[in-house]
Amino acid sequence: MLRNFFKVENPKGVIGLNRRNIEFIYPNNQRKHYTLADDKVKAKMILHEFGIPCARTYAVIERISQIKSSWSKLQSHTKLVIKPAKGSGGGGIKILSKGRDGTWQSSGKTMTDAQICQHITSIISGLFSMASNDVCLIEECIVPDPFFAEIYNEGVPDFRIITLKEQPLMAMLRMPTSKSDGKANLHQKGVGIGVDMKSGTLTQVYDGKHYSDHHPDNENSVFGKKIPYWFTMLQLAKKTAQAFPLEYLGIDLVIDKIKGPQIMEVNVRPGLGIQLVNKCGLQRSL
């Protein structure tokens, strides 16, 4: 209808939510399998089963009565992540590390055991997952590869690779910024960096409004930077796509300093912003 007033050309083959749902998600992802990806605990079970590297699980807490005993068993670790199994958009995720005085620290603030248990209770109550209850996942904290520090040295950056029928279509690197509170999501003020799939190099930085050649917090050019382990990551993405009975996926990976590429999570309804980051439509990448 708007086409009566405007001539809209779509030379880059950009797809919208309508086409994503009708042509990508519905024919490729059966609803009964969504939970395999939406529930991080179930997803990790599949990953473990197929021997795909991912963060080590320290504890899965399903009941409020288990919180105290589970938490006391985790005190030997110095760094860990607490997250809701069915959370979305990074809500409810807390990265904890032990300070010098032996207390747990999160985003620079001390958290008492009582506060941590309260947070786990909230997760189990379903506060972060649009459901009446959830499961709390406590796992190993990834230490990002030094490669990322060359671009920005805070938080945990991750790669998103879109796969269709086990073939990687498009990818981007998501990085936190000084304004994003450690989160790498585009709509939480993180930035996306485009990826050249063939050469495994970075292209341009997109902050949701503007394109540039550097991270907003420094001046270092990113264009053409070689991504470490790129072809390993592509293989990992393919292997993950094969492991799940879902044919259209957004696979999130991180690179650990020591263990290399790891699968973080799997999404059945990956967002469309990746097209903007790469200046390319998903339709054309087919």
């Binding site: 009566n4 007033f5 405007f6 001539k7 050309e9 779509n10 880059k12 200046k279």
Partner: peptide, 8 residues
């Protein structure tokens, strides 16, 4: 940014 939108 990825589309060509021209008023007719």
């Amino acid at each position: 940014p990825l589309l060509n939108i021209k008023p007719l």
